[in-house]
Amino acid sequence: MIKVRDMTVAYDSAPVFTNLSIQFEPGKITGIIGPNGAGKSTMIKGLLGLTSKQSGTATLADQPIAKQLKLIAYVEQRAALDLTFPINVLDTVLTGTYPNLGLFKVPGKKEEEAALAALTDVKLAEFNHRQISELSGGQLQRVFVARAIVQDADVIILDEPFVGIDMKSEADIMAILKKWRAAGKTIIVVNHDLNKVTTYFDDLVIINHGVVAQGQTQDVFTKKNITTAFSGDLSNILFDEGEATHE
């Protein structure tokens, strides 16, 4: 289990959130939702130590996360990468083996087979020699999911994996997340689309400069919580329409 306790992160002295505490359970897909700028990605980065935090602890199995980063696969938001880098799909997936290769070791046959298998899992086997710049947004996201497969981590964190991708890619990625869940891994997904929250996530964390609510999705995804974190208008649209289709 991942536990975040009393985490405070501030940029230029303005706190993004103070004393935030969350936990993520294995064998579940946990969604993190919240409005733009609510601190979703910052929370993830603070947890991974990618951003310096003013206070708080983050543990995995009661040990500091900083000492077990290799057990966590992090799939960053796609936009941050230089897609003109001279690298093809297979070599990109192979970088997923780096965390578990020792210093001075390079991927060999075994690693290559794992990468090809992962590409088959995300239905991109025939693309292995493509440049990454030649892929669609959805294909690219599946490449990074394949890299996470190869990493064989206990915890997988995906930041906005479904932004700007096609329906098929989204379904393929969701299938992989469910496989991971069945294998008892901890899956954390930062998401901003509220429409599929109830079908995708077992647990849900609602964030707006702090935790608004967390727990099982059916308990947490309520009109009241959405009104608090987002706006009354949005929750009216989401929940009143939901009720209308019931009738």
């Binding site: 290799k70 992090y74 960053e76 941050a80 970088t95 965390p99 991927p107």
Partner: peptide
């Protein structure tokens, strides 16, 4: 030669490299 994979990953995807420590 010794740090080839580290040089590759930090040039290509520095955040990924930092995320795995």
């Amino acid at each position: 030669v010794l740090f080839y994979k580290e040089l590759l990953i930090t040039s290509f995807d520095n955040t990924f490299a930092r995320a795995y420590g």
